[in-house]
Nucleic acid binder design. Sequence first.
DNA 1: TAACAATGTTAGCCTAGGCTAATATACAAC
DNA 2: GTTGTATATTAGCCTAGGCTAACATTGTTA
Lengths: 142, 142
Amino acid sequence: MLTEGLQDYIEAVLICEKEHGCVRMKHIACRLGVRTPSVNAAVKELARLGLVSHESYGLVELTASGRQTARSVYKRHQMLRRFFSETLALPDNLAEKTACGIEHHLDERTAARMTRFMRFLDSQSEKHPGFAKELREALIDE
Amino acid sequence: MLTEGLQDYIEAVLICEKEHGCVRMKHIACRLGVRTPSVNAAVKELARLGLVSHESYGLVELTASGRQTARSVYKRHQMLRRFFSETLALPDNLAEKTACGIEHHLDERTAARMTRFMRFLDSQSEKHPGFAKELREALIDE
DNA sequence: TAACAATGTTAGCCTAGGCTAATATACAAC
DNA sequence: GTTGTATATTAGCCTAGGCTAACATTGTTA
């Protein structure tokens, strides 16, 4: 079973791949703010689950199914980040932190619903000039 | 420091108090789906933090500061439950489960922002007949 | 090619927070 | 008052997932 922690790790693999072209233990460690022995243990487990391949002292690579999993985790993360950052107009770092904290607690259905919800808000902004502005004003909290 | 787990416990104390008039270990255990020894350890810690008072084999009672903390946790929980249940129109049990999972990951500011956001949506529904209906239709996902 | 720097791995420890089994207490009923 | 049942507590174990320190490997550079 893919625990919350492992979801973070596999997402990190995908992102490190994008960022560096290849994935080393230290990249993952750096991204997640943990030490390499922790990464080592996690990657071992991901390999056992067939989500990455990895041989000793070598690079980490996503398998097909691992990539699919990672993408789905990533997509959800981005959706949440957008919700907090764009919809709620919170600062990027806070939006990111919050998205990161909650992403593992939304099931498929809830995530899909939120996506539709955000789409609806976008459509309202387009249809009704003033909607976005009203929203922005409603959110001010000082 | 009040860990996530302890926040669940202190919220449970408040709810058990509402439900039963007094708070026993077993009430908390039942509500959180854990065993009494786990509750015992948590309550001990809450007492150490000055959030509840409790003597051996007796009832658990919130202190003033504990009650304040519990209420704030509870309020956030309810706000989230409403977001998923009313705004996103998800089934109650799913909304509850999701709210429960993510509540500890929102800081004060984010929670306040979401509250304002929901207030804004309510005001739109009032001002523009059809808004709520359009939203409902936009969320359908079958 | 020898040595060093960077990286990865292993071993062993720690904490949080569950659990069960065994023990202790409180209270009700006889 | 003794006994039985419900509840609470303690002791001790387990897992996930961090960590450091020590060791191993790789690859680069003199």
